[in-house]
Amino acid sequence: MVKIPYYPGCAVQTTARNYSISGIAVAKKLGIELVELPKWNCCGVFPSLATDDLMRHLAPIRNLIHVQEMNENGIVQNENRIITFCSMCYHTLKEVNLFLKDAEKMEKINAFLEREKEFVGGVKEGYRGGVEALDFLEVLRDMVGYDRIAKEVKKPLKGLKVTPYYGCLVLRPREIGIDDPENPTVLEDILEALGAEAIDNPNRTQCCGSYHTVDRKDIVAKLTYDNLIYPIRNGAEVIVTCCPLCTFNLDHRQKEAIKLHRDLKETPVMYYTQLMAVAFGLDKQFWGVDLGLHYVDPKPLLEAKNLY
């Protein structure tokens, strides 16, 4: 069992608990123990894109400093990687290292953090750089491998028509993305290893409407329709996602999308880790389908496919 620091993020602790519960169990099955940071804060979700905005970069840096501390406290040994499930957390944690390539910014931030030594709970040391953020999808592709995933499958998802949806932040911009921004394959490859049938979605890398879900539901409803209608027309029975915000928009905003266009059929949205937990034959508590978090309940589908 290899121990790697794990950053949960706010979403997987609340509205996307089904993601982390299934993900942690799947990782364990594949020989990876995700060790949660002893202390962490919200990553900031979107990195500030303003060159002069240092303060909004503090949040991810604090989390990376906690990885340094885990090494110093012997919780992990020489482990400078940090794994996360949420695409937005991944994006932010990855981006900050690029931002800090500018030595002057790094120095300014560490000078700001210097005074925290005086305070209870403040960081004891600045960021030294070099903590590498990994999206769990990368871990599956590069560390575990699809063959190993296929080997763990106890209940192949034969006949389950799944359409992958990537969203933006795990792919773009190119310097941060984990796969080809125009033609990613990692989700399809995982689904293939699980024995499911992947239904193509031309809009799988298009934005879900993101944070407009707070104040412009109309925009999100239209995008939810656009992003789902083609694969559903082509027979997709479940949408598989990797980002808690995409998932919320594609799942909960179906309500508004169907009001716009009646031809959209309610379709469940699941995290790839949930489907892995199902295919691996893990105990149902690790599937995360009984927590009341899905807007469209995936259980009837799983039952119909003799998977539940």
Binding site: A11, T15, V45, F46, R56, Y211, D215, P244, H252
Partner: peptide, 27 residues
């Protein structure tokens, strides 16, 4: 750009924290 106080309570009960954090950072 947006009025934080006017977001309906029913929405706040279900919105993921990341939706609010990212929205507030941009608006």
């Amino acid at each position: 750009k947006i009025s934080v106080n006017e977001i309906p309570k029913e929405e706040l009960k279900i919105l993921p924290p990341i939706a609010l954090v990212s929205n507030f950072r941009k608006t």
